[in-house]
Design a protein around this nucleic acid. Structure first.
Lengths: 249, 249
DNA sequence: AAATAGGAAATTGTTTACATTATATCACAC
DNA sequence: GTGTGATATAATGTAAACAATTTCCTATTT
């Protein structure tokens, strides 16, 4: 069978490119093309700051590291440029995008706009069982938080936002929000790893969940908007501390 | 000089690719890279329906037509896929995206969201002289419209939206709105060429301009939102008539 | 006549090569 | 030492080549 042969080749590539565990995780889903894989790896290098803001990206280096040709890396970089994680200066190469306060402002303004709208669209349509599932995760998170464990709060966060995005019913909006998530990760220098923020974020999210459960669209929107503004403020407040003096504004 | 040499090569390419008048227009601005030019040409072929919705796009064909290599065409297609004008089915090629009523809904919902927000941001910051300029264009348009000439109404439309976009102050929002403009063109099967619609659109735009001039943010937002909803309705009403039976929903 | 198999042609995904441009190195003058 | 220019090296932009897969056409079978 053609597909089997194909799968073997992809596996072979994969083993060059990633660790065994990552590989198994990836192979679970229906076949990722090589382009997608390369895109993801380059993107992750950027959003997790393995490639640092304003650092030059040399396609040939990444190509060698991944064991693929430059074309694939360049294609990934082209997409990442569209996603605002990379800038390309003609004849001088690609660079990881800089971090500035103005960017945080812009991104979070848009995030607020998009996610509040998604909330409006999603709240009337969320299935009860989905809400119940997320509630359960919040229950676990509350217990964990008492003992200073923040991981499940992070999960609760992601699941709540994810559920709203998933059920907003507008495919383009969905894609945009998901794309912006990469930017949040990139900019989230400060995050829930601080237990204080985790506690506050837990409460904020829980309130949103309650409004969602009550199908109170207006309240859910307000809370979501407020929550995103708060998140932005935290990042901005700690910006100078966490940034590496690369870029001010 | 290095740049001069470079320029000559680009010119040479350009003459292969486009008519003399187009070429001069393009060269006015600071040098467009070949990638950009190819991207623009492929994009225009799609949004002006020279390549029809759901038609297959064969990269080699376009490459030959433009006198460039497949790499450049594929790069352009990759970007256009991100912009939702093209879909790529692995191993089976690129296709011009289909047109459906649901897409019109989605796109115009997002357009409304983005442009209303841009209005909110821009109205307090628009320079008086910019407003005056656009007013002047509206004056001309009104006269022309009396004689059944719609071109300047179209220009007035574009200038008003363009001014608001330009002064919204959020660079990312700006890019998003501009990108969506391509989609509007692609979907604008019905447009201002009908004199009735032109008259209505003129009034709608003029009201927005008045609110902008009065710096009445709230009213400007409402009018803008309403105007975009109206535009969507016109398209949807005429959808079945103008569509080629490719795709329903 | 319809269905199916098989092979040729077309097309895609990816790599490799090449020309041009930018960057770094080093020698030499001041 | 510092600055300047020439040369070598590295990196980019683009094209061309190649392998694998799909599509299309024809011939054969039922």
């Amino acid at each position: 069978m053609a597909t089997v042969q194909n799968m073997d080749k992809i596996k072979e590539r994969l083993s060059q490119m990633m660790s065994a565990s990552e590989r198994r995780a990836q192979l679970g889903q229906d076949h990722q093309s090589l382009e997608d894989l390369v895109y993801q790896r380059v993107r992750d290098k950027i959003i997790y700051h393995e490639l640092k803001p304003s650092e030059r990206i040399i396609d040939a280096k990444l190509a060698e590291e991944f064991g693929v040709s430059r074309s694939l890396v360049r294609q990934a970089l082209t997409i990442l440029e569209k996603e605002e994680l990379v800038v390309s200066i003609p004849r001088r190469g690609f660079y990881v995008k800089d971090i500035s306060k103005k960017d945080v402002q812009e991104i979070y303004d848009i995030r607020k706009l998009l996610e509040v709208f998604a909330t409006e669209l999603a709240v009337p349509n969320l299935p009860e069982n989905q809400i119940a599932q997320v509630e359960e995760i919040f229950r676990v998170a509350r217990e964990d938080l008492k003992e200073g464990v923040v991981e499940s709060t992070i999960e609760a966060d992601m699941r709540l936002h994810g559920m709203i995005t998933e059920y907003c019913g507008n495919e383009r909006l969905k894609k945009m929000i998901k794309q912006y998530n990469n930017l949040y990760v990139f900019y989230r220098i400060v995050d829930l790893s601080q237990i204080n923020r985790a506690n506050i974020a837990y409460v904020e999210h829980y309130e949103i969940l309650e409004a969602v459960k009550a199908r109170d669209v207006q309240r859910a929107k307000e809370l979501m908007g407020q929550h995103i503004e708060n998140a932005r403020e935290i990042i901005l407040q700690n910006f100078n501390f966490y940034t590496f003096g690369i870029n001010e504004v």
